[in-house]
C-alpha cells in the first residue's frame, strides 16, 4: 500500500507507542488546543485502556504490589509486549513471564506464580464448554471397568504448579478467604477450571499433575493412576477421585473432541 495513508498510520502508531516520539507533523488543529495536545487524547486512551485491561485481569497481583507499582509495571510491559490481537481477553498471557524477569518485583518471590494463576482464570472463563463427568454416573462400575475408563481433563482445566502456597495467597488477596498470615508455608499446585459457569480455583491433591498429564497423553484411568503413583510419593487415588471427578474436572475422552467441533469457531 502506498504513500500518504501508510505514512500517516505508521507515524501515528510510532508516536502512540513511544511518548518520546513527537506526534506526527501532519496533524492539524483549527484552534487551541494544539495538535500535539489533541494527539495526547489518543495516547492517553490507549494507555488507560490497556492498563485497565491488565488491572481487571490481575487483581491479586495488583493488590500484592499496590496500584502505583502495578501501573508502572504495566506501562513497561505494554511497551515491551503490546497486544498483538484485537482479542483483549488474551492480553496479558505473557505478563507472568514478564514479572518473573522483572527485577523490581523480585522481592515478592511468588508474584509471577500468582499472575500465572490469574492468567489461567481468564482462559478458563472463556474456554470451551463441556459437561463434566458425574461421580454418580460411575457408581455402578466395577473396579476393572473403572480402570479402563478413558477420561480427559475438562477443556478449561489448567494446572499451575508453584514452590509457594499460591492458592492460599491468591484466596486471601481476592477476599475468597480471610486475610491472615500464611501459617503453613509450603508449595501448592492450583487447579484452575470452569466445570460449568463459575471459574474455580482449588488445591491439587498430591500427584494430580502427573495423573492429569497421563490422562491427557491418552492413558486409561488405571494406567494414569499407576503412572502417577510411580512419580508422586504421596499419591492417593481416593483423594484424586474426590477432587478431580467430584470437582467436575474430568470429561469423557471423546466428549472433548465433540465439544471442540461444536466450538470450532475459536481460532
Amino acid at each position: 500500500m502506498t504513500s500518504v495513508m501508510s505514512g500517516v498510520a505508521g507515524d501515528f502508531a510510532a508516536a502512540l507507542r513511544d511518548p518520546l516520539v513527537t506526534p506526527p507533523a501532519m496533524l492539524s488543529a483549527h484552534a487551541a488546543p494544539a495538535a500535539s495536545t489533541r494527539f495526547c487524547v489518543y495516547r492517553n486512551n490507549v494507555a488507560v485502556s490497556l492498563i485497565g485491561a491488565l488491572e481487571a485481569r490481575f487483581p491479586a497481583t495488583r493488590r500484592l504490589v499496590g496500584d502505583e507499582f502495578f501501573r508502572a509495571m504495566a506501562r513497561l510491559y505494554i511497551k515491551a509486549q503490546p497486544p498483538r490481537s484485537p482479542l483483549m481477553m488474551r492480553y496479558g498471557d505473557e505478563l507472568p513471564g514478564f514479572i518473573a524477569r522483572f527485577e523490581p518485583a523480585a522481592e515478592i518471590v511468588y508474584l509471577a506464580d500468582i499472575a500465572r494463576l490469574e492468567a489461567a482464570r481468564t482462559r478458563a472463563y472463556h474456554a470451551a464448554d463441556a459437561e463434566p463427568l458425574e461421580l454418580s454416573s460411575l457408581a455402578a462400575l466395577d473396579p476393572e471397568n473403572f480402570a479402563r475408563l478413558r477420561l480427559a481433563p475438562h477443556p478449561s482445566l489448567e494446572i499451575v504448579e508453584s514452590a509457594f502456597p499460591i492458592v492460599t495467597i491468591w484466596a486471601s488477596c481476592t477476599g475468597e478467604a480471610p486475610l491472615t498470615a500464611v501459617e503453613d508455608w509450603r508449595c501448592e499446585t492450583a487447579l484452575v477450571a470452569r466445570p460449568r459457569l463459575e471459574v474455580e480455583v482449588r488445591r491439587a491433591p498430591p500427584g494430580a499433575a502427573a495423573f492429569l498429564e497421563a490422562l491427557a497423553r491418552g492413558m486409561s484411568f488405571g494406567e494414569a493412576a499407576d503412572s502417577a503413583a510411580a512419580r508422586a510419593k504421596d499419591f492417593d487415588l481416593a483423594l484424586i477421585i474426590a477432587s478431580l471427578i467430584g470437582g467436575g474436572l474430568l470429561v469423557p475422552a471423546d466428549g472433548v473432541k465433540q465439544m471442540e467441533t461444536i466450538h470450532g469457531y475459536l481460532a
Binding site: 502512540l16 507507542r17 490507549v46 485502556s49 503490546p82 498483538r84
Partner: peptide
C-alpha cells in the same frame, strides 16, 4: 498497525 493492536 504493524502487528500491534491499540485498543482505540
Amino acid at each position: 498497525h504493524g502487528g500491534v493492536y491499540f485498543n482505540d
